[in-house]
Design a binder for these strands. Structure first.
Lengths: 332, 332
DNA sequence: TGCGCAAATGTTAGCGCTAACATGTCGTGT
DNA sequence: ACACGACATGTTAGCGCTAACATTTGCGCA
């Protein structure tokens, strides 16, 4: 590990003061073009790279953000993080990644650790900590943005996907295609997202001028098996239903299997749609109509908002990104 | 953004020198228990958190590692990164994440940026840069570990999954189950992993005492469509083949679909296996027998090796992790 | 010719912490 | 009673950089 070149080495070699070198490095102020050229030549020759730890200590800014997710191996968060990293890199920032496994204690530790590292800001993806605790942790020491959670006081802002509206897109699509009797495999009551998606479903049914009483609402587990079971029940008890909208894509894929096993043709006898646009959705047969959440966009917007705020720019406080309807064979 | 508490504030408040506070914070040397207690009490009361930027500048260590991947939204890398982050956190390190999209220029930029940030070490996942360029970039300035690539000089070490051995596991499994005539959908000749997996296949065929001439080797595209095509060709031209091993799981899933369409029963008439154990593998019908790469383990081992090295501990230079055979219905 | 002002460069101090050395304070054994 | 050493604590300097102010240089213009 050989000795690193410092700004002083460059200054000595170029016969100028360290400050002049600093100015050249930071494209600052007025430096005579020839001086600048000379300094740059020395920098190049010595292979000087500024030490950003020292710079951070002097400027009190680290150009570093923290991103806290529950698990980066969850594709949803992977996309959000990817978006965050893209936006950060573009603006000269770096990203510390923290996984919490939805553990409250780990969440606290992650935030504390990021604060110790002097990050300029933090992006919290679906944090579980109660509002008061978040506020106490930050108490104005760092800026933070929430992803997938409503704005709370002291937060720079919040970025979410309009999941109620996403369900509505599917309802609208099905109704446009002439389906009149719809069902919603609604997930686990009380579970995350249940209330809001169900509200979106009901609202869209009303908006389409359909009778809410005619719609079938099936609570179900939020996995593959839940969809299988919900669809089996539907086929048995409500054979007149023409379109099934599922809480998420896994549920929808379970539902597709149930249809195959019960000899129900998709989409001719029953149209099926999911929510989420997971990779699998385009690989099952028939390919799944679904709603794509702007996952990458969530990360990009969160970081953009955060950096805008850090640079004193104007920005929105709450951003609601529109999901996109992906029409495939299961509900054409 | 209110003023942060520094070590000097704590020292003043506790009536000791900053050095004593530093000793308490770092659990160093001998500090009288009652002094320690008093200092800790003040730390607690003021909510002091050490500034690790300043600490890094003074100690010349950042307790930070860089992890460079081509794309975190690729589940393979997401798992590796997760393993890396887990291992790092456990040992008090943090992780900077960089995506390169397989772009050489971005790879160089990422490494440069990490060096500027004074990371203590870097984990490079499947870097594309040629050996000389990597060596020039690092030239002894930082320690780095390679994942999924052979050791090169100056690297701390390399961690890989034994993919040739993984193919062998499947061959061995099929042979044990009495299959004698096997085929390999070998991927794109010249593409990444092609040579080594094909070698593993041939080696295993030989080791099983089978005639290499009897084995069918099909080049194919490495996606879903490639598998469909390869399997269609196989069914048509080599109806006597009993087991098909595929370059990866997507290829295998394409092959499964071809079997359905050609009325070939899996696994009764043709056993099919993939490589990779992607999430999808357990969701298709029949569930896919495959080989699981120790992705999380790659990350863990890489970071452990790196930190061991940084702490002056002994460590391996090359680690080859064993893949695991996951037996499911498609090749029981 | 010299004044004044802007551009170019230098000087000083300090960010918050720790390494290394300096000093102080005991209890102990003779 | 005193010297010694072990432990406890303080002092000094510096990590590499930049902010803020200080100084110098050059040039236009009266």
């Amino acid at each position: 590990m050989r000795q690193r070149i410092t700004i002083a080495d460059v200054a000595r070699e170029a016969g100028v003061s360290t400050q002049t070198v600093s100015r050249v490095v930071n494209n600052k102020d007025s430096v005579r073009p020839e001086t600048r050229r000379a300094v740059l030549e020395v920098i190049e020759r010595l292979g000087y790279q500024p030490n950003s730890v020292a710079r951070s200590l002097a400027t009190n800014r680290t150009l570093t953000l923290g991103v806290v997710v529950s698990d980066i191996s969850n594709p949803y968060f992977a996309d959000v993080v990817r978006g965050a990293e893209d936006a950060a890199r573009e603006r000269g920032y770096h990203v510390f990644l923290c996984n919490t496994d939805q553990d409250l204690q780990r969440e606290v530790e992650a935030i504390r650790a990021l604060q110790g590292r002097q990050v300029d800001g933090v992006v919290l993806c679906s944090p579980r900590l109660p509002e008061e605790e978040l506020m106490e942790l930050f108490q104005g020491r760092q800026e933070f943005v929430l992803v997938g959670r409503e704005w709370i006081e002291n937060a720079v802002g919040s970025v979410r996907s309009d999941s109620a509206g996403g369900v509505g897109l599917v309802v609208e699509h099905m109704v446009t295609r002439g389906l009149r009797k719809l069902a919603f495999a609604a997930g686990r009551p009380g579970g995350p997202g249940h209330r809001i998606r169900l509200a979106g479903f009901k609202e869209a049914i009303r908006a389409a001028g359909l009778d809410i009483e005619s719609a079938v609402i099936l609570p179900c587990a939020t996995g593959h098996a839940g969809g299988y079971q919900a669809a089996s029940e539907l086929i048995e008890k409500h054979p007149d239903v023409e379109g099934l909208i599922c809480f998420n894509d896994l549920v929808a894929i379970g539902a597709l299997r149930a249809c195959v096993e019960h000899g129900v043709r998709v989409p001719e006898e029953l149209a099926v749609a999911g929510i989420g646009d997971i990779a699998l959705a385009s690989l099952v047969q028939p390919q799944l109509t679904t709603v794509s959440h702007p996952r990458h966009g969530l990360g990009v917007q969160a970081v953009s908002m955060l950096i805008d705020h850090l640079s004193g720019k104007e920005h929105e406080r709450e951003i609601l990104l529109k999901p996109e309807l992906i029409v495939r064979a299961s509900a054409p």
